[in-house]
Design a protein around this nucleic acid. Structure first.
Lengths: 210, 210
DNA sequence: GTAAAATGAGTGAACGCTCACTTTTTATTT
DNA sequence: AAATAAAAAGTGAGCGTTCACTCATTTTAC
C-alpha cells in the first residue's frame, strides 16, 4: 500500500486550494481554467481530478472552508468578559483589520462568489447562511446591551446587526475595487460614533442622585 | 437612402439592451451567450453585431446607460427647498423604494458588474466613478447641514457619505440574493435614526433664550 | 513488486464572431 | 401609381478557438 500519509494528502489538497484561490482572484471563476490552477499548483490537470471532482467543486470548497468562518471567528475573538459595547466595537475593528492587513484577498474572493451566486444555488445558500450567522451574533450582542441597561430599550437589534453586516460587505466591495485606505479609517470612526449615538439610552427622566 | 428613422433604430437598440439585461441577470455575464441575447431579443446573431461591436460592449453600455445615473438621479429628486436633513432622508427613501419597487433588477445588474470588475478595467472605472459621484453629492448635503448649524460642527461629511453608499450597495447585494423584505423596512428606519443621532448637534452650551 | 499517484495528449462540446447571402425599406423614374 | 434601383437591415451556417474533463500510460512510494 504505497498510500501517502493522510497529512501529506491534505497538504497537497490545500496547495491546490491556494492555487485555485489565486487564480480565481486574478481572473474570476468563469475565466479561470483548470489548466491555470494545475499550472499554478504544480500538478497536472489529471492530478487535480483525484482531489476534486469538478472545477465548481473547488470553488465551493473554498467558500465552505475559507469564507464561512466569519461568525465563529467573531465569537472566538470577542471575549465574554467584555461589555456588549466593547464586543460590538471589537467586531468592527476585527473587520477593518482583516480587510486591511490580515486577509486582504478574502474580500475579493467573496466578490467572486457573489457573482456566481446568480448561477449556482449552492453558492447562494452558503452566502445566505453566512449572512444569517453574522446577523444573529451581532444582534445577540445588542440584545445583551439592552438587557444590561447599557443601550436604549427600544433598540432594534436585528436591524442594527443587518446594517453592520451589509455595511461590512459593501465596504468590502469597494475596497476590493480600490477604495483609498484613508476612507476606511474614517469610516470606522464614524460608524462607531453613529452606533454609540443610536444605542445610547435617552437621558433618564428620573436622574438618580449624583 | 433607405435608412430607417433614428427613433426606430434607437428603439431596436434598447430592445437588444433589454434582452441582454434579462439574460445577464439570469445567467451572469460569462455564461450568457450571444445566442441567448439574440433569441430573447428576436434578432439574429448577425444583427446584434450591427448594433454592438462585441458582447462585452453590450455589458458596458448597460452599465453606462442604466447604472451610472445614480448621482444625477439623486440630485434631481431632492429639491433645493428642502433642508439638508430632509434631502438626506429622501436619498435613503429613494434608494429603498428603487430597490423594492421601481428597479428591483438593477441591483442584480450591479452585482453582475461587480463580478466582472476583476477582469475588466473599464467596468472597474465605471463603478469607481459611480462611487465617487454618489459620495460627493451626499457629502455636500452633510456639509450644507453643518454650515446651516443643523448638524454637529465636527461631522465627517465624507465618511458619512461613504458609509451610506457602502451600506446601500451592501444591502443591494443581500437583497439580490433574497433577503426578506421585512429587514429592508427596519433597516431604513434604524439607518435614519442612527444618522440623526450622529448628526444632531450636542446641546448648545449657551442656550438661546427660549 | 505492486498499487496508488500523477501525467498530458486527446475528445467532444460550446462559444464569440464572420460573411456570403436574402429581405426590407426608401428614393427615383416613368 | 407602379416599376426600378440602390443601399441598408437582417440572416444563420460555419470557422477557429477554447475549455472541462478522460484515460492509457508512466512514475513514485513503500
Amino acid at each position: 500500500m504505497p498510500k501517502v500519509t493522510e497529512g501529506h494528502r491534505e497538504s497537497r489538497r490545500q496547495a491546490i486550494l491556494d492555487a485555485a484561490q489565486d487564480v480565481f482572484l486574478g481572473k474570476g471563476y468563469q475565466l479561470a481554467t483548470v489548466d491555470d490552477i494545475a499550472t499554478k499548483s504544480g500538478f497536472s490537470v489529471g492530478a487535480l481530478y483525484r482531489y476534486f471532482p469538478t472545477k465548481s467543486d473547488i470553488m465551493l470548497t473554498l467558500l465552505e472552508e475559507r469564507l464561512s468562518r466569519g461568525p465563529e471567528l467573531l465569537r472566538r475573538l470577542t471575549s465574554d468578559r467584555e461589555t456588549p459595547w466593547e464586543s460590538l466595537a471589537r467586531c468592527v475593528d476585527i473587520f477593518v483589520s482583516a480587510l486591511r492587513v490580515r486577509h486582504p484577498s478574502t474580500g475579493r474572493l467573496l466578490l467572486v462568489a457573489w457573482g456566481e451566486t446568480l448561477q449556482d444555488g449552492t453558492v447562494r445558500q452558503g452566502l445566505q447562511r453566512r449572512f444569517g450567522g453574522l446577523i444573529e451574533y451581532l444582534a445577540s450582542l445588542v440584545r445583551q446591551g439592552v438587557e444590561a441597561g447599557d443601550f436604549r430599550r427600544d433598540a432594534d437589534a436585528t436591524a442594527v446587526a443587518a446594517i453592520l453586516v451589509s455595511l461590512a460587505d459593501g465596504v468590502t466591495l469597494y475596497w476590493s475595487v480600490g477604495t483609498p485606505d484613508v476612507y476606511l479609517h474614517d469610516m470606522r470612526t464614524v460608524t462607531l460614533q453613529m452606533l454609540k449615538a443610536y444605542l445610547k439610552p435617552p437621558a433618564a427622566r428620573e436622574e438618580p442622585s449624583v
